[in-house]
Computed example of a mutant assay.
Amino acid sequence: MDFFSQQWATYRAVVSHDLMEHRAVAHATANALEGWLAQRPVAAPPPAMVDLGCGDLAQLAPVLRRLPLGGYTGLDLTAAVLPLAETALGPMPYPCAWQEGNLLAWSQSEAPPVDILHSAFAIHHLSDAEKTTFLQGHASASPPMGCCSGLMCSASRAKPWRPTSSATARGSDRAGRR
């Protein structure tokens, strides 16, 4: 078994046993996104979504299948998980893209604006200074009425990510540290 497979098996065990409350985060994300979508004007074009640290989409794929998106981009630092995510999601009526990349670099890039920015458990890997840089960079990538969902923990204690958008999914990290 190679290094990725060993690490991925450990990660899958954490998710399968819900040790970091991935199910609750996915449920909160679904509620926030569905609520935000329900408030959008009927004539608004379908929103574009970027999922930073998408992983294999084990928890989020069922949610994504219900959403009337205009497009979805899954970004992950590990290229090996992107085919797993694509398989988990399956064929969709909207375009999907899969990108290997660093979420901090993405936030500083000239990426086109997105309507929905999601990151469940990837941002907590950043230091507090990197989180600040990320949030400053991401602010220019999302329109004022966009939606952010996710979980962010500081190095000292768990904190829900509370962006100034119209909908936020809140979760908790039992460990309370990165």
Score class of each variant (00 low, 15 high):
F134Y: 03
S142L: 13
S142E: 09
L135H: 05
C153Y: 04
P144A: 06
M152Y: 08
L151H: 09
G150T: 10
G137L: 10
M145L: 10
P143Y: 01
L126R: 03
S149R: 13
A129H: 11
E130W: 02
K131W: 05
C148P: 03
G146A: 15
H118I: 09
H125F: 15
L135Y: 00
S127K: 12
S142T: 12
G137F: 00
S119L: 10
T132D: 10
M152C: 15
P144G: 06
S127M: 10
C153S: 14
L135R: 01
S140C: 13
A141P: 03
H124M: 12
H138N: 03
A122I: 01
I123L: 15
F121W: 11
S140D: 14
C147R: 02
P144W: 05
G137P: 07
C148W: 13
M152S: 14
Q136M: 09
M145S: 09
I123P: 00
H118L: 14
A141Q: 13
A139F: 08
G146I: 12
C148N: 08
L151I: 06
H125W: 14
T133W: 00
A120P: 06
A122T: 06
S140T: 12
G146Y: 10
H138I: 06
S142V: 12
E130H: 03
S149N: 13
P144L: 01
K131C: 00
P143M: 00
Q136R: 12
I123C: 03
F134M: 04
C153A: 11
M145E: 11
C148F: 12
S149G: 14
F121Y: 13
A139Y: 09
H125E: 13
H138R: 13
A120W: 02
C153F: 09
E130L: 02
T132M: 02
M145C: 04
T132W: 06
S119A: 14
P144C: 03
P144S: 02
C147H: 09
L151R: 01
M152T: 13
I123E: 01
F121C: 03
G146S: 15
S127H: 12
L151C: 06
P143R: 00
A120V: 05
E130I: 02
A122R: 05
S140A: 15
S142R: 11
F121R: 01
G137S: 11
P144N: 08
H125K: 11
A139R: 15
C153E: 10
M152H: 10
F134T: 04
G137R: 08
D128C: 02
T132L: 12
L151N: 03
F134N: 02
P144D: 05
A141N: 09
S119T: 05
D128L: 07
L126F: 10
C153L: 09
